[in-house]
Simulated scan of single mutants.
Amino acid sequence: MIDQINTWRTQIKKTKSTIDKNFKNYEGSNILSSIPAVGTTIGGVLLSELSNDTLEFTDYRAFQSYAGTSPVTKQSGKTMRKVTMRYACNKNLRHALYWLAFNSITRVDWARQFYDKQRSKGKKNSIALRSLSNKWAKIIFSMWKHQTPYSPDFFETNQKKKNLLTGFA
């Protein structure tokens, strides 16, 4: 039994090494791997979805809708407004962005602050992570469109500009 387990471990290491090499050989992998919370698994899913030539997104909002990270508001007549998760989407991409958000709260300072702010507003864990994944979808779309690697300074500078323009501190 131990010999069999050791054989499986060797095979798993070889497979992981092959996957890592293949991921690094694809164009655009350097952009996605510049994000601290992206590894081979999440990066591979993002790379496969972003490099799909049949998808032409006009702006980041279209990408967020396709990815399923943007919320859907349901309201009719006199009924109360209800915000729900988007179900008509690419579920593989939504799942990858959700795990990116989960991983980023321990590796990216602004992501942790954003998550904590959502939780302090009374949002559930899953809703706060989905909201954070919506932010990541916007950032990734911009990175991919401009072919630039991730820079935490860029995000923080843009956030400060936004706060100055809107008057929020």
Rank of each mutant, 00 (worst) to 15 (best):
D3W: 04
N6C: 09
N6K: 14
T7Q: 15
T10I: 05
T10M: 09
S17N: 10
T18W: 08
I19M: 05
D20Q: 13
Y26P: 00
Y26K: 08
L32Q: 03
S34Y: 03
V38A: 07
T40N: 15
G43A: 00
G43K: 00
V45W: 00
E49W: 01
E49M: 07
S51L: 04
N52T: 02
N52Y: 01
L55A: 08
F57M: 09
F57V: 07
D59M: 07
A62G: 12
A62T: 08
Q64A: 15
Y66L: 06
A67M: 07
A67E: 07
T69G: 13
T69F: 14
S70I: 10
S70P: 00
K74N: 02
K78Y: 09
K78E: 15
K82V: 14
Y87V: 15
Y87I: 14
C89A: 08
K91T: 10
H95C: 13
H95W: 13
A96I: 03
A96H: 06
N103D: 00
I105P: 11
T106F: 10
T106H: 12
V108F: 03
D109C: 06
A111R: 04
R112T: 08
Y115M: 06
D116H: 00
Q118Y: 13
R119G: 05
N125F: 12
L129K: 07
R130Q: 15
R130K: 13
S131W: 00
A137V: 01
K138G: 13
I139C: 14
I139H: 10
I140T: 00
F141W: 13
S142Q: 11
W144I: 02
P149M: 06
Y150F: 15
F154E: 11
T157W: 11
N158P: 04
Q159L: 15
L165F: 15
G167W: 09
F168C: 08
